[in-house]
Design a binder for these strands. Structure first.
Lengths: 213, 213
DNA sequence: GCTGTAAGCTTACGACGTAAGCAAGAGTGC
DNA sequence: GCACTCTTGCTTACGTCGTAAGCTTACAGC
């Protein structure tokens, strides 16, 4: 009289893995817990997935697939700008993702699509192959770097007050006058502690525009 | 008649940890192996170090301390440029470091010194606090992001031929025309596969110069 | 019914970080 | 010389991890 449960599948495994990572970060994603979440023993997962690394690759690609790619007809600059913002937003929605994304070689279908789109927009806008490669690399280095940094910046975290007070004694020592003053400015509200992606992105895009001629 | 061995110390532990990470990456750095390297049991390390996380924080700060900071008298732009290059080089010397650097909140003495230096150069060059913060954030997001990306880019690895041939079938499918063509250009030697830090860095610095007015 | 194949289960191994308590030696005060 | 404390390193053990090897069960096609 037991209802025959839905059989496992690579897709079901990856969905559960994504949910687990979203809920508790990479640490919460273990094969045992993943099995538990699916009502199955850990070893059963290996019928549908080569190993844990494949799971990680799968969920990273899933996140990349969430990046909405604007139509190239918007013009290369606008397209690259909103592509960058969309990537940043998708990654922020899954805070565990950037570290994974940047510390592995990713060749999932969504990633390849995403790269090909980017190269295509730049090429069609008249950038040389060399400049296209450099431009792509520069933008993505910045976007991913910025996102990862932001996620680990104490200021962006709810326990900012704790962190700040824990470090105040370091700054008070007098060895780091500029940091101390900067902290004072941020705490006084003169200046947003939360960094802004578009500042640097626009800097890069304007520079690329000038190089394109 | 056994020679009394050199007693452990936080410094000796960190030095050995750094050597271990340099030799085999983060995975090779375990408390047991670290003890073994020092001729000591793993648990003995805990007398000199709070836990493994403290070890990681220690060696990351060690790497940061290797970044040579140019004299601010060179002018802010030249100083920021060679600071960036120096940071990149130091991180490349310790390929395991960028991932660690970017996935934790770092408040070691070398890191604080490094940040304070950067803020100081920008402030003394006349940047507002707001612009100083944005500039610092943009530069470092790019530098770290670029370095981490480069380390995980298959092209930078000795097994590039393998990696390329393993992915050729994906490109050959026709779904990714621009990537395919780019790969062809790189393989034909028309274009360096190895990315260049200074391209993006100069883009950013030129943009900052314009903003400073 | 028989048999082949797939899906999930069981057990087990060798890592890992580290908590708790023990042992042995080095100073120190008398 | 002797007890005392403090420091340093060692022993043992626990719970967790990824996953190799082999087993069981259920169903499909004949």
């Amino acid at each position: 009289m037991t209802a025959t449960r839905e059989p496992l599948s690579r897709e079901r495994v990856l969905n559960a893995a994504l949910a687990l990572a979203d809920a508790g970060g990479t640490d919460a994603l273990t094969m045992r817990r993943l099995g538990q979440e699916l009502g199955v023993e850990a070893m059963s997962l290996y019928r549908h997935v080569a190993n844990k690394d494949a799971v990680l690759a799968g969920i990273v690609d899933q996140v990349i697939s969430e990046i909405t790619l604007p139509p190239p007809s918007d013009g290369w600059k606008a397209a690259m700008r909103s592509r960058g913002v969309a990537a940043h937003q998708a990654l922020i929605r899954h805070p565990w993702a950037p570290a994974l994304l940047m510390s592995r070689t990713n060749t999932g279908p969504a990633m390849l699509r995403y790269i090909d789109y980017t190269l295509g927009v730049l090429r069609e806008a008249g950038f040389s192959w060399r400049l296209t490669d450099y431009a792509w690399n520069t933008m993505d280095s910045y976007i991913y770097g910025f996102t990862l940094r932001k996620l680990n910046f104490p200021i962006a975290q709810p326990d900012y007050a704790d962190v700040a007070s824990a470090h105040v004694h370091l700054l008070a020592g007098g060895g780091f006058p500029y940091m101390a003053e900067m902290t004072r400015h941020v705490m006084a509200g003169n200046h947003p502690g939360d960094p802004d992606l578009t500042f640097g992105l626009d800097l890069i895009l304007d520079g690329l525009e000038r190089l394109r001629g």
